[in-house]
């Protein structure tokens, strides 16, 4: 028994006291900043593996970016990634960061359904569905509940059954073979419900975009409450994203 107490004692405090302001250790490729410096745009656009970079004006679509960092390495005077992990928004177009845009990425309160703040701000239960996810987003979504990130403290939890859930979190590019199970899980979730798409694969298909093995029609049929970029989604991006959705007061 003494051994167990020793182990307890040795753990000290492991949780991150404030997940909204903590700094990520080391290198982190978060929200990019694109300068207005002229460069060879064609070359820049072509180097991106997922077609996330647009030209005139130069832009990066965070819904397609894998955060590989290659563009910032090849064109350091043009593109840099800040350590800002708050990348989530409820507006797909806001994921496109343009030249000169230095603003944080936030949710648009106008687009949040009224009942979300009323019903979910203190308690949100989510059912995660991996639909072709490569197990990296799934890993990070498990990590959000560990003792370090401890998302449970905000009343946000993953649950086993869609019947107990207030919404779905989708990871992966949505394979043809998962299209039907995903639809069934969504239908089994009681109203009112939300859909969160987490990670580049889920948002745009990522590197799998256009693969004949996908069926992404689900996303066209139902409203998306939140997009959270990342490859994979960082736990801090996820927690902050969900908090911004459920804690933003709407009129």
């Amino acid at each position: 028994m003494l051994e167990v107490f020793k182990i307890w004692f040795h753990q000290g405090k492991q949780y991150i006291p404030d997940v909204t302001t903590v700094e990520v250790p080391g290198i982190f490729r978060g929200r990019p900043i694109i300068t207005t410096q002229p460069i060879d745009e064609k070359q820049l656009v072509e180097l991106c593996p997922t077609g996330a970079i647009g030209a005139s004006p130069v832009s990066i679509d965070l819904g397609r970016c894998t955060f590989c960092g290659e563009c910032a390495i090849q064109f350091p005077e043009k593109i840099s990634f800040t350590k800002d992990f708050k990348l989530a928004t409820n507006q797909r177009s806001r994921l496109i960061v343009k030249e000169g845009d230095m603003n944080p990425i936030t949710v648009n309160p106008e687009l949040i359904r009224k009942e979300i703040y009323r019903l979910f701000r203190g308690s949100l239960k989510l059912r995660q569905v991996s639909a072709g996810g490569d197990n990296s987003c799934e890993w990070e979504l498990n990590a959000v509940s560990n003792v370090n990130f401890d998302m449970g403290r905000f009343g946000i939890e993953f649950v086993a059954s869609p019947r107990h859930a207030d919404g779905l979190v989708i990871t992966g590019p949505i394979t043809e073979n998962m299209a039907e199970p995903l639809r069934i899980a969504y239908e089994a979730t009681p109203e009112p419900k939300i859909i969160i798409v987490a990670g580049v694969d889920a948002i745009s298909g990522g590197i799998f975009e256009g693969s004949p093995a996908l069926n992404r029609s689900f996303l066209d049929k139902y409203p998306i409450a939140l997009y959270i970029p990342g490859n994979p989604v960082h736990p801090l991006s996820f927690i902050n994203g969900v908090l911004s959705l459920i804690r933003t007061k709407t009129k």
């Binding site: 990520v24 080391g26 982190f28 894998t66 955060f67 590989c68 960092g69 490859n231 960082h234």
Partner: peptide, 11 residues
Amino acid sequence: QQWCGNRLAKS
């Protein structure tokens, strides 16, 4: 993350 900017070593 500290090495390459990604917790799962992507990139």
